[in-house]
Amino acid sequence: MKKMTLWGRDEHDDRLVLEVIRGKKTATCTPKVWYYDSPEEPPTEVGDYVAVYDQQGKHRCTILITENYEIRFGDVDEKIAKAENTNSIEEFRKDHVVSWEDALRQEGNGLDDNTVIVVEHFELVEKL
Score class of each variant (00 low, 15 high):
T62K: 06
E70P: 05
V52T: 05
T66C: 07
T44S: 14
T66H: 06
V52G: 02
E67A: 14
Y69T: 00
C61E: 00
G47K: 04
Y53E: 15
L64F: 09
D54N: 15
I71W: 06
P43F: 04
I63K: 06
T62N: 00
P42E: 02
T44M: 12
E67M: 10
H59S: 10
A51E: 14
G57Y: 10
V52S: 01
G57R: 13
Y69F: 07
K58L: 03
L64D: 08
E45H: 09
I65L: 03
Y53M: 14
T44E: 11
V46E: 06
L64Q: 13
I71C: 10
Y49I: 14
V46P: 00
G57S: 15
K58C: 02
Y69A: 01
K58M: 02
E67F: 06
G47M: 03
P43T: 00
I63G: 07
P42K: 08
V52P: 06
Y49M: 15
Q56Y: 05
L64P: 08
Q56R: 10
I65V: 15
E45T: 12
H59P: 11
G57I: 13
Y53D: 13
D48L: 05
E67S: 12
V46S: 04
Y53L: 15
G57W: 09
I65M: 06
V52H: 00
T66S: 04
L64Y: 11
R60Q: 12
Y69L: 01
I71R: 09
Y49Q: 15
Q56I: 04
G47T: 01
H59R: 13
T44Q: 05
V50P: 11
Q56H: 08
N68L: 08
R60C: 13
I71Y: 05
T62Y: 03
T44F: 15
T44L: 08
I71A: 08
